[in-house]
């Protein structure tokens, strides 16, 4: 095996991991603050991908503007979903929110099929992004490096916001104890909304990356990465943002190495491998890598 091939795999793992990490962050933030597993979160990836495609194709906007618009579209979608589907159910049992999120997910997928048809579309990227990049003799493209760099940038920016700003402090307080946060004068509806907007914005950008990396998008594309990012969030300890990031990279990396290092006959089992990994990790660490136990959180 050549060193170039190994570098290929490592960069591939980092790229996939970057996307999982960005989506997992949203899962974790939303769960952390209102204990909701939002199954519609993966579909925001799809929306982000189509918004990007539309902007690049129809308007031919410059790339940084497209990236900003994707962030805004993802965030806006999160805002709408929270207002329309989850806020009316505040205070209802957890399972109600869970079912509602499944309903939103199915609705978004079907709306996507209705408006855009299920036919996959080619996702065109500017030429310079698709150009090959020379790195230790590996067969990679500029976009791979761009994905990793922007994911790391966005993730650290978000962590900084959570750690250092007044809003971030309010979000942490709300996540820890909603009622007490309200007694401090925190408008928890606003902090919950902020968690949805920030998490969904990152998922939207992940859609842009997904399209750029794989070249084709369709209205159901959010389902599998959504599920896997959820796994990444659980591995990291759902509720913890650093955990979600680490979980995303661990999962992306091990998935790519699994497919790349084992004989090709095993490749179709990559999803089984991903969920097998989850089960193993949870057997050893029931709360994930960075999770706090449910007793502590109660």
């Amino acid at each position: 095996m050549s060193g170039g091939y190994l570098t290929d795999l490592l960069v591939g793992g980092l790229t996939l991991g970057s996307m999982y990490a960005l989506v997992a962050i949203g899962f974790s933030m939303i769960y952390g603050i209102i204990r909701l597993i939002n199954f519609a979160h993966g579909d925001i990836v799809m929306i982000g991908a189509f918004v990007t495609l539309g902007l690049v194709q129809a308007l031919d906007l410059p790339l940084p503007l497209v990236a900003l618009a994707t962030l805004a579209a993802g965030g806006g979608m999160g805002l709408i979903i929270e207002r329309a589907a989850f806020r009316p159910m505040r205070g209802a049992p957890q399972v109600t929110g869970f079912i509602a999120s499944l309903a939103v997910s199915i609705m978004l997928q079907n709306l996507g099929v209705l408006i855009l048809t299920a036919q996959p579309r080619n996702f065109v990227c500017p030429d310079w992004l698709s150009a090959p990049a020379r790195l230790l003799g590996a067969n990679i493209r500029v976009i791979d490096l761009a994905i990793v760099a922007s994911a790391l940038g966005l993730a650290s920016g978000l962590m900084l916001v959570i750690k250092k700003t007044r809003l971030g402090m309010a979000m942490r307080a709300t996540a820890e104890n909603l009622d007490t946060a309200r007694l401090m004068g925190i408008d928890v509806n606003r902090t919950i909304m902020a968690a949805f907007v920030m998490g969904s914005a990152l998922a939207g950008v992940a859609g842009f990356m997904w399209g750029g990396k794989f070249g084709q998008i369709d209205p159901l594309l959010g389902y599998v990465p959504g599920l896997k990012s959820f796994v990444a969030a659980v591995i990291g300890g759902v509720g913890s943002v650093p955990g979600a990031i680490l979980g995303g990279y661990l999962l992306g990396m091990s998935e790519v190495l699994f497919v790349g290092l084992l004989p090709p006959v095993y490749a179709p089992y990559r999803d089984a491998f991903v969920f097998g990994t989850l089960i193993l990790i949870l057997l050893v660490l029931p709360n994930g890598l960075f999770g706090t136990s449910t007793e502590e959180r109660a």
Partner: peptide, 29 residues
Amino acid sequence: VAAGISHCPEGRQVFSSLSVRENLLVGGY
């Protein structure tokens, strides 16, 4: 809260993952 009523809840309910200083700052949110 804005009208000048502070409620110190049963069982203290400090935000245990926030620092002591941050807890105080949240109190003056």
